[in-house]
């Protein structure tokens, strides 16, 4: 079942709306949802102060879709901690989109801001536009970044994407900012555009892997080149991206050889960076 939220105003002060999850909506009346609290600066306001709501509400979060009909780039915490269901944002989304989520799906048609998917543990976030910094990252202080799930960005991603990542998958079809996958200790990042400086800095290992299809701006001197080969596992992963996650670009690289770099030697890590040889 689907409920539609039409933005009423463009807020000057960003609205913190962690209530925007199928988990919270499920089983409520529309009028109750309208009264859910959102935080604007130091005030508590109502969801209906910012959105017109219509549609139907399901009993279970898994059956609930929330569609935001317009721009929500000043709305923070959309899908925060959600476990099931689906959120569709027709425009952009504000900070902390889907942070701490553990299941379900979020699709943003516009751009997303910083900390999208931060510390998420499951589910799928698709951002059709660009995203800000610290995509799928750990919040400052935490050493447990993303621990599962998948984030797909069709556009570009900012800096320190996947910092302290432990598990899960990040796919960026455009370019990615510097220090992607820093401190990574598990998980995989696929970068179909160009990767910047510091990719994989201080990555530890534990199966962590960064795949760069269009080269790297300047690879750290502490990543040790080993070989060029067509590892079979890459085919599996690419097929998974292509078939399950519907990433068409992955299909172009099934037969591509990759250069294998291991590092970061600065921390005695054995993470891997693969750079496509095209």
């Amino acid at each position: 079942m689907e409920v539609f939220l039409k933005p009423k105003v463009k807020p000057l002060i960003p609205v913190e709306a962690e209530v925007l999850t199928p988990d919270r909506f499920a089983g409520m009346k529309l009028s109750e949802i309208e009264g859910l609290p959102v935080y604007v600066g130091n005030r508590v306001e109502k969801l209906s102060d910012y959105f017109e709501l219509e549609g139907s509400i399901s009993e279970k979060p898994a059956d609930q879709q929330i569609t935001i009909l317009g721009d929500a780039s000043r709305i923070k915490y959309i899908g925060y901690g959600m476990t099931a269901g689906r959120i569709l944002v027709e425009g952009g989304a504000g900070m902390h989109l889907g942070s701490h989520m553990s299941g379900g799906e979020i699709v943003v048609k516009g751009n997303a801001s910083d900390w999208a998917g931060a510390e998420m543990s499951g589910g799928l976030i698709s951002i059709l536009g660009n995203t800000g910094d610290l995509l799928g990252s750990a919040y400052r202080g935490s050493r447990e970044g993303m621990t599962g799930g998948c984030i797909i960005v069709k556009g570009n991603a900012g800096i320190e994407s996947g910092i302290f990542m432990r598990r899960g998958t990040i796919v960026v079809e455009g370019e990615i900012g510097s220090f992607a996958g820093a401190h990574m200790n598990g998980g995989a990042i696929f970068i179909f555009g160009k990767a910047s400086r510091g990719v994989g800095a201080e990555m530890r290992g534990n199966g962590s892997m960064i795949v760069c299809f269009k080269g790297v701006d300047s690879l750290l001197p502490t990543f040790i080149y080993n070989t060029i080969y067509k590892p079979n596992f890459m085919r599996i992963y690419l097929k998974f991206l292509f078939n399950t996650l519907k990433i068409d670009k992955a299909g172009e690289y099934f037969e591509t050889p990759f250069k294998r770099y291991v590092g970061d030697a600065a921390v005695g890590g054995d993470g891997e960076i693969f750079i496509a040889e095209t």
């Binding site: 510091g198 800095a201 201080e202 300047s218 750290l220 001197p221 502490t222 970061d264 030697a265 600065a266 921390v267």
Partner: peptide, 9 residues
């Protein structure tokens, strides 16, 4: 960063 990393290695 690059320089310090190299030193660490």
């Amino acid at each position: 960063f690059e320089l310090i990393s190299a030193l660490r290695a």
